[in-house]
Amino acid sequence: MRFVRPELLSAAGLIALWQLIAVALRPAWLPTVDSVAVELWELTTTGALGVVGGSLVTLLIGMVVVFVVAGVSALLLAGSEVLDEALSPLINASMATPHIALIPVFTFIWGLEETTRIVTVVAFALFPVILTWVTAIKEVPGDLVEMSSAFGASRLKRLRYVVVPSAATLLLTGVRIGVVQGIKGLVSAEIVIGVVGLGKLVTVASQTFDVVQLYAVLVVILGLSIVSYVVLTRLETRASAWNE
């Protein structure tokens, strides 16, 4: 059992089941696995998937904004108990709001511009990152911080040599949550806008009832989120191994 990972087996089983149903019953909503694979190849070779590059740049800009703002906010909140106590419930509450409902307002203000998508990415990702990072900074052992200041370390040095290394795992958790949320924001904005990036492919496919293309684009989107999730989780595991 040690060498066979049950989740891989079950994933392979599900894909096999998908193919079986698609071939045997031919439902209108489920194309065969191979037709989706061929479509994926065609989308790639014809350059239709080139839009992914543009979307990723937008995501990157949004994530930079998120991490800078979240970094500053987390330092402020972790540094002041009163501020933390006052604002954390507000941040928690805004995290629980259905962010997708905000997208029409964003498109109303910024139209089809890139700003709409960047703002959506920030709206989805910012608050969870702040909350995780506040926890990360607070988890730094107090005696380490005290010792470093006793040895005359400046604020910046303390951040660089004490806070970041000992909080690395949770900081990376924040990064992972942020990126996952950011991708959700990006994809949601693009699909609701409907004429840019991957959203355009989804809209065109679903309006022309091109189910095969719909699945191919879906595979791209799922692949994007799964790969970034797995990579960032690995990074996190490594960091926690270093810490111990």
Partner: peptide
């Protein structure tokens, strides 16, 4: 996975089905 992926992308498939 369902928590990680943007579920909005699955909506058109549900509508087709």
């Amino acid at each position: 996975l369902m928590m990680v992926v943007p579920m909005i992308a699955v909506v058109p498939v549900v509508i087709v089905a």
